[in-house]
């Protein structure tokens, strides 16, 4: 179905997805509140959405009555839960045997609760509509950094629809919204690999390959290798390649990036370039840096800055090739 320009401009299709999911989330939370109120006094509530796993996380603090509770169990069959935890606020030790899971929700064994005590109940539901996060948040990152001196990449998260989140208890927090930025590393590697090393690689690759030519070609390659063995890096090709590969390990590479403003660093991995036909890049042209941020009703947009400290990477590359100088 083709949308008219106004509907597309205001992303109406997404709004329906968001409204439907929020309605479902509220149905569950309101039913939980209603059931709890039958026996307890609710003191506080908080709703948040864990974005990476697409989970609705609802927490309620409530107080048990001074008098004895007569019913044995309270049923909360409002949808399949992912996890439920109940703990007294003072000790924060979960009372695992107070909760039992059912086909369509969970039950609390009221006999396990103390009288006149404050409790924290936390419930997690999967958000079924997988389009929800994308329909609710616009995410943009810079595709490429500008200028040669310092590589900087911007990131922005902003709500597409805010009024659907306006609820009676105020804030619905969206936690850990993921952003992937492709940080270009190819230029620095290319520039720092000495040509003699490239030549050694070429000869080694040809010799090891079954595709090299006849006797003459083989003889020439052996001669070249012999000649190159007198040169630098000889015999170290694989160690050097290994050290280069180490630079792209998340634990190493994270030292070369700094995430600032409303975002924080989460992880990094080898980037996937759309023009590569090997989808598992042995030698990445980019590193994908994952950063995260939070949004809520009172903070409807956030911006972040990722700085790639390329000079530090260059220093490390120089160290690999200048060993023993």
């Amino acid at each position: 179905m083709k949308m008219d320009p106004i509907s597309s401009l205001l992303s109406y299709a997404g709004k329906e997805v968001v409204a439907k999911t929020v309605k479902e989330m509220l149905r569950k939370s309101k039913n939980i509140d209603k059931t709890l109120r039958e026996e307890f006094k609710i003191l506080g509530r908080e709703m948040r959405i864990e974005c990476p796993q697409s989970i609705q996380h609802y927490s309620i603090t409530f107080k048990t009555k001074k008098s004895r509770v007569f019913s044995k169990k309270q049923k909360f069959n409002f949808g399949k839960v992912r996890r439920v935890s109940l703990q007294p606020i003072i000790s924060l030790q979960p009372i695992t045997d107070a909760i039992s899971y059912t086909e369509n929700g969970f039950e609390i064994n009221l006999k396990r609760l103390e009288q006149d005590t404050l409790y924290l109940l936390e419930i997690e539901y999967f958000i079924e509509d997988r389009r929800f996060i994308d329909a609710l948040i616009n995410k943009n990152v810079s595709r490429e950094s500008f200028g040669d001196e310092q590589y900087e990449y911007w990131m922005v998260a902003q709500f597409k629809h805010l009024n659907v989140l306006k609820q009676e208890f105020g804030v619905i927090e969206l936690k850990d919204i993921d952003f992937g930025v492709d940080v270009s590393v190819y230029n620095d590697i290319k520039m720092k690999v000495p040509s003699i090393f490239t030549k050694q690689l070429e000869v080694a690759a040809k010799l090891l390959s079954k595709h090299h030519g006849g006797r003459d070609e083989q003889f020439r390659l052996y001669w070249q290798l012999q000649h190159l063995q007198r040169a630098k890096y000889s015999g170290e090709v694989f160690q050097i390649l290994e050290q280069l590969q180490d630079l792209f390990l998340p634990l190493t590479f994270k030292r070369f990036v700094d995430v600032q403003k409303d975002f924080h660093f989460y992880d990094c991995e080898r980037g996937q370039d759309f023009y590569e036909t090997l989808p598992f890049p042995t030698w990445p042209k980019t590193m994908k840096v994952i950063s995260r941020t939070d949004l809520n009703f009172n903070r409807p947009a956030a911006d972040g800055l990722l700085i790639f400290k390329r000079k530090d990477l260059i220093k490390n590359l120089e160290r690999i090739f200048n060993k023993g100088d």
Binding site: N187, T198, L201
Partner: peptide, 26 residues
């Protein structure tokens, strides 16, 4: 499917595919 040769060759290709003035020649 990987072999040592592929590892070496892929790095050579990598080095030959990128150029100083922001060119990637695939």
């Amino acid at each position: 499917n990987i072999s040592i040769v592929t590892e070496l060759e892929s790095f050579l290709i990598y080095l030959k595919s990128v150029y100083e003035n922001k060119i990637i020649f695939i």
